[in-house]
């Protein structure tokens, strides 16, 4: 009987992530102060170490499970990564994530009004809304949120560069 070659699948990846997280925890916790065993006072490392141990068990199980049930899962190859960018809808999702990163980076500098408006405009345009529709809803949501959070709940929303024009 020929031995089938090892093919990485999603179950293996889950197992490897569990083991990696456990390794990170166990490499950090030795720097934590120790507890006092004689009075039952456990140190700050006690609970994270316990959880890391559980995660190791989970990781090992996932690796075994992924290998045992390999035919049920499609193997992860270079094509898997290529396919991640093939579908237009998936690319749109990645772009939305990028828009959100931009929102976070620019929120304080540009201020709530500008950042929110620009984010919504780009979001709607990318999702196929017409220019006028995008403009209308971007303005609509920005205004609603500004009045709801900024005015009704008196939450301080950053003015950013608009502070120079008194907004």
């Amino acid at each position: 009987m020929t031995k089938k070659p090892f093919r990485l699948n999603q179950e293996h990846v889950i197992g490897l992530v569990c083991l990696a997280v456990s390794a990170i925890i166990l490499s950090i916790t030795p720097t934590f102060p120790k507890g006092k065993a004689n009075i039952g006072l456990t140190g700050p490392a006690f609970f994270p170490d316990l959880l890391a141990f559980v995660f190791i068990l989970c990781g090992v199980y996932q690796l075994w499970y992924g290998t045992k049930n390999a035919p049920s899962y499609s193997p992860i190859t270079l094509d898997t990564f290529r396919n991640l960018f093939k579908k237009k809808e998936t690319r749109t999702a990645y772009l939305i994530i990028l828009f959100m990163v931009g929102f976070i980076l620019l929120f304080d500098a540009l201020g709530f009004l500008l950042t929110t408006f620009l984010f919504l405009l780009l979001f709607l345009l990318r999702l196929g809304a017409s220019r006028w529709q995008s403009l209308f809803y971007a303005l609509f949501f920005t205004t609603i949120i500004y009045f709801l959070f900024g005015w009704l709940f008196t939450i301080s929303l950053p003015s950013g560069i608009l502070a120079y024009v008194g907004l």
Binding site: L124, L127, I145, F149
Partner: peptide, 28 residues
Amino acid sequence: PRNVVLAGITIFSIIGAYALRSSVFDVG
């Protein structure tokens, strides 16, 4: 329109999280 609903949910989620502690960290 579906895209408008998704845009509304996204921005309410973001600003809702920000409003908790006025922190961009929470949006992250």
